[in-house]
Nucleic acid binder design. Structure first.
Lengths: 204, 204
DNA sequence: GTCTATAGCCAGATAGAC
DNA sequence: GTCTATCTGGCTATAGAC
């Protein structure tokens, strides 16, 4: 099923890279199948259409990412000692880990594109499949920031989401210095993002 | 020159709207010229190519926007009483005014797309033409936040830029309530963004 | 499951009449 | 400056042999 050398997996990997570089319209099935080393007809055979392929590119990463996020959230949600930083860490750390493993950073660029696209069918797909994740996080933010009106909270979450998406999509460019390990670098980045997001959410 | 009914201007307006909705690749010259009510060949005659048209779509708005920003910055830069909020206002208010006049909000969506595209030729065009604006603002931020290391400051500015771009591109969706005037609504939105950005830039 | 071949369509660009 | 007509090439999708 998840054999990384299977035709399906090679198409998905090549699609992710090309969608990140050239966009959904800009990347053609011809470039994509050539890059994956499979036949042009394979995309329609395995996925049905280019649009369905796009959805599977999202599903492959987001299923794991959001499951990971919810698992981290479950550890702290509703607990008396939980801080805003704890909840933000549950949201941000899994994405950061993904963006540093294999071609995960390419996927983050695909995600940033999807945000900018404002495409209705894609938004509906994301909302149907992963809307519950955002709702659980929002509920926990509301618990920790009870003085904020709902409208104000949504506003701030939206701004934080914009900042994070923008940041994650650019991670390929953030240089790690030679004297810090990969592990340290990720910790530092996570700490930066979490503090920034906490400041944006909780300012008076 | 700027006659809004001229062929050139009608192409630019139609291009802005279609690029916002469908992207640079997704919008074809055929749709675009049909929407503008001009002949298919007019784009190549007046602009040379589709790519040059894209650049002019940016130039038309960004020349005015960045001039406006620099004018506002000049009023407060280097002054002893200037606050972080003053500088942020100089950056944000002109964009907010643009996004509320005519089809300005469409242009903000085009700008958000350009950020997500990571297209090298477009980035170079923007950097060559408007890089000095960002540099002047960065210098003033550095003056007001002298305790931050350069790397840290760039990081925070990048996150703020991501949040603002995301927010501006979604302004079409932020509902103005019936009991607040257009003017009040813009003031409230500006105040929100400025406070959020100030919190993100200046947290300890 | 994988291939070739091709249908059917739409793209950007341009030549040349007006 | 504006038009029509057309060139050339890329696109998604599919039919049908293996």
């Amino acid at each position: 099923m998840n054999n990384p050398t299977s035709t399906k997996e090679r198409i998905l990997a090549a699609a992710e890279a090309l969608f990140a570089q050239r966009g959904f319209d800009g990347a053609s099935l011809r470039q994509l199948t050539a890059s994956a080393g499979v036949n042009l007809a394979a995309v329609n055979y395995h996925f049905g259409s280019k649009e369905k392929l796009v959805e599977q590119v999202f599903k492959r990463r987001l299923d794991a990412l959001n499951q990971h996020r919810l698992a981290e959230l479950a550890k702290v949600a509703g607990q008396p000692g939980t801080t805003l930083e704890d909840v933000l860490a549950a949201y941000i750390r899994p994405a950061l880990e993904l963006s540093h493993e294999g071609n995960g950073s390419l996927f983050m660029r695909v995600l940033a594109r999807a945000f900018a696209e404002h495409d209705d069918t894609l938004r509906q797909f994301l909302s149907e499949n992963y809307g519950h994740v955002m709702r659980q996080f929002t509920a926990e933010f509301a618990r920790l920031l009870p003085h904020l009106e709902k409208a104000e909270l949504y506003w701030r979450i939206d701004l934080v989401t914009g900042a994070l998406t923008h940041a994650m999509s650019g991670f390929g460019m953030i240089q790690r210095k030679d004297n810090v390990s990969e592990q340290q670098h990720r910790e530092q980045t996570a700490a930066h993002l979490i503090r920034f997001a906490a400041a944006g959410l909780s300012h008076p």
